[in-house]
Write a protein that binds this DNA or RNA. Sequence first.
DNA 1: GCCTGTTTGAAACGGATGTTTGCATCCAGA
DNA 2: TCTGGATGCAAACATCCGTTTCAAACAGGC
Lengths: 205, 205
Amino acid sequence: MSTKTDILEAAMHVFAERGFRGGTVREICERAGANVAAVNYHFHDKSSLYAEVLQHAYRNAGAGEAMPTLADAPDQPEKQLAAWIHWYVRRLLHSDGTPVGRLMARELADPTEALDHLARGAVQPVFSELGRLVAAVAGGGLDDRRLKLQCITIVGQCLVFHSGRAMLQRLEPPHFTSDDAEEIARHITAGAIRACDPTPLESRR
Amino acid sequence: MSTKTDILEAAMHVFAERGFRGGTVREICERAGANVAAVNYHFHDKSSLYAEVLQHAYRNAGAGEAMPTLADAPDQPEKQLAAWIHWYVRRLLHSDGTPVGRLMARELADPTEALDHLARGAVQPVFSELGRLVAAVAGGGLDDRRLKLQCITIVGQCLVFHSGRAMLQRLEPPHFTSDDAEEIARHITAGAIRACDPTPLESRR
DNA sequence: GCCTGTTTGAAACGGATGTTTGCATCCAGA
DNA sequence: TCTGGATGCAAACATCCGTTTCAAACAGGC
C-alpha cells in the first residue's frame, strides 16, 4: 500500500510542476521509486491518477489555518475582512506543503471536468464568505452587482501575486515575495475598505 | 511569404487552444495548408515559432486602439488613468481575433523561455505607463513600493476577469461578460483613484 | 511446504511528435 | 534558355510516451 501513496505524492508534485500533459508517468514513478507499470496497476491510467491527485490535494489543502468569518466577530466586520484578506494572501503565497495553488492555476488555464466539482465544493464557500464580509463592511450600501464586482476584484488583487508571479519577477523592481504577504494584504485591505465607503468620488477632497 | 504568415496565424490559434506542449506541428501545418517541414524551414523549430507567435499576438492585440498615456493629457491624470484601465480591460475581454489572453494565461501557468522576451519587450512598457499614470494621480504621494503595489493590484483586478473566467462562470451569479467591460473598468478606476488619495483611512467618515 | 491471489519488474509494443533528408518545383536574372 | 537559390513536399528518422505483457517475487491461509 506504500507504493500507491508514494505515487500519489510524487504525481502531485510532478503535475504541479509540469502540468498534466507535461508530467510523464516515468518521471512520477522514478520519483516514487516505483516501476512504470505501477501507475496503470494501482490507478487505471494517467487521467484517473490526475483526478485522484486533484481530490487528494484539495482535501489536504485546508489543513492549515481556518478561514476567518464574519460570524467570528459580527460587530467588527472591517477587522474580519482584513483578517480574511491576510489569510487568503498568506494561503496563496506560502505554498508550503501541497502545491494546490499551482494545480489550481493550471486548471484555470486549461479547464477539465474536474473544475466543476472544485468550484462548487471548495471555491464557492470561500467566495460566499468574502461576500458576507464585504456586505457587512459596506453596511448594505451595495447592490448585488457592485458587491460581486468588489469581491472579484479583491480576489483578483490577491491572485495576481501568485498567478502572475512568473511575469512580475521579470519586470523592473521593486519585487514582492512571500515575505511581503502582510504588506500586500494591508494594501489590498485598505483599498477594499475605502471602496465600500459610500461617499461619492468627487467629495473626497 | 504567404506560407510563413499562414503558419504564424494557425499556430496562434492552435497554441491558444491546446498550449505549447499540446499543440502539434502537424495540426498547425494542416490548419495552415502547409507541409510539416515548413515549420522547421521558416522558423528554426517549434520553440522559436512559439516565441514569434507570442510577440506577434501581443503586438497585434487590440490593434488600432493605442494605449492611452499620460503624455496625451498631462494635466488630466485621472482621466488618463481611467482611459488606460478601460483600454486594458477591453483589450483583455474583447479578444476578437487574436487570442492573446489565453496565450498569456498559459504562459504564466507554464512559463517557457519565451516569457523573458515577452516581459522585457511587450509587458514592461505597458506596466511602466501605468506607473507614470498612478504616480501622477497620486501627485508624488507614493513611494516606490506603494506605487508598484498599486500598479500590480490594478492589473490584477483587470486580469482576474479573464484568467479566472472559467472559475467565475461556475460560481453563483451575477456573472460578468465582455459586455460589462465598461462597468468593470469604472469600478476598478474608482477604487484606484481612491487608493491614491493620501487621506488616512481613519478620517474618511 | 504448498497453493492462491496480489504486487512488482524488465522489456516490449504501438503510436505520436519534432526534426531531418533528399528531391521536385518554381522563378527571377544572366 | 540556362542557372542557382529559395521554397515545397513526401517519406523517413529518432525519440519519447502511455500502456501492455508476462513472468518473478511476495504474502497469507491451509
